[in-house]
């Protein structure tokens, strides 16, 4: 019980701090924090596969970008309202996950390779199909989201909107990973052969997880396009897929707050270091290596280790 109340207290403190942030933070910080929530959500989608099902997907940027592009194109080029464009983006990204989900027929390094290839298909499409996607320039002038005549135009309003969506997602995700289905994913990660002999059609479970992950990534994509107000092929790039996986790992894979903490560390460091050091990506690399060497379960794992003992089995044989 003690452990549980600790988690609840920490979650409430975090939510309170997030709600109060616009009162103290200036616009620069507001932009950064909103970005952290959106990338954190994308990292969370990666971690459903990585931290629970044991699949390392490197095409998450595809769902993110397809959702963002669909919303942007419908809204800017065809003038559809947000109420159509945003759900359409969500559906388009998720449908892509339904299609790409066939990758779960492979495992291990083959799965990684095939998702890289699938990711490049979308990147290539948005980059080269310039007449439709705007090519290098992407789609600009995406209007702020507006629903029923009410526009979420101000930065603070959009911040609260993103925060609400992220909190709802985190709660939904928490239920999902604690459900029998969520447990089955960890079972597959632990031993797929045993799961099969216990009666699980493991490929179907992984497929479902892949589609749910695609749905979360698509949601992040829709939030991103309204936050950024423009979208270009970088959103579909391999680099994004890698970065969000690193966020999940640095923050703490297999947890809910981990990917968000990872996003905060990653984007915060990048913003700060790039202001005075040209080789800032090298710093990110060093952080990642340090994580793998000294904190393999990420920042969350590090905190857990130092937390005053509450009868948790820490001493692993």
């Amino acid at each position: 019980m003690k452990v549980r109340s600790y988690g609840v207290v920490m979650a409430l403190i975090a939510i309170a701090a997030a709600l109060a942030a616009p009162l103290v933070a200036d616009p620069f910080w507001m932009t950064l924090i909103t970005q952290i929530y959106i990338y954190g959500l994308l990292a969370l989608s990666v971690d459903l596969l990585l931290g629970h099902a044991g699949l390392y997907s490197l095409c998450q940027a595809s769902f993110f970008a397809v959702a963002a592009y669909t919303t942007a194109i419908l809204q800017v080029r065809y003038g559809y309202p947000t109420i159509v464009a945003a759900p359409a983006g969500l559906i388009a990204g998720t449908l892509l996950a339904v299609l790409y989900g066939s990758a779960v027929r492979t495992r291990g390094v083959y799965f990684i390779l095939i998702t890289i290839a699938l990711g490049y298909i979308i990147w290539g499409a948005v980059y080269r199909w310039a007449s439709f996607t705007g090519g290098d320039n992407g789609i600009t002038n995406v209007p702020p989201p507006s629903v029923a005549g009410f526009s979420i135009a101000s930065q603070t309003a959009y911040y609260y909107f993103v925060l609400t969506v992220v909190i709802l997602c985190a709660f939904g995700y928490r239920i999902l990973i604690r459900s029998p289905f969520g447990l089955s994913l960890r079972g597959i990660k632990g031993s797929e052969s045993r799961m099969q002999s216990l009666g699980y059609r493991t490929t179907m479970h992984l497929y479902a997880a892949f589609v749910i992950s695609g749905l979360i990534a698509s949601l992040a994509g829709v939030l991103y396009v309204y936050y950024n107000r423009f979208i270009n092929p970088v959103a579909a790039s391999f680099q994004i897929s890698v970065e969000v996986s690193l966020m999940a790992i640095v923050g703490g894979s297999g947890t809910i707050v981990g990917p968000f903490i990872g996003a905060g560390v990653f984007l915060g460091l990048r913003n700060w270091v790039s202001s005075f050091f040209e080789l800032h990506t090298a710093v990110m690399g060093a952080v990642f290596i340090a994580t793998v060497l000294w904190a393999p379960s990420g920042i969350v794992g590090l905190v857990e280790r130092w937390r005053p003992g509450i009868g948790k089995p820490k001493d692993q044989p």
Binding site: I175, L176, R178, S179, P180, F181, G182, L183, S184, M195, L198, G199, Y200, H205, A208
Partner: peptide, 15 residues
């Protein structure tokens, strides 16, 4: 739950 439909339940915790 491996041999029945409960293994697909995703919207309720195991508890």
């Amino acid at each position: 739950v491996g041999t029945d439909r409960r293994k697909w339940v995703w919207n309720r915790p195991l508890s």
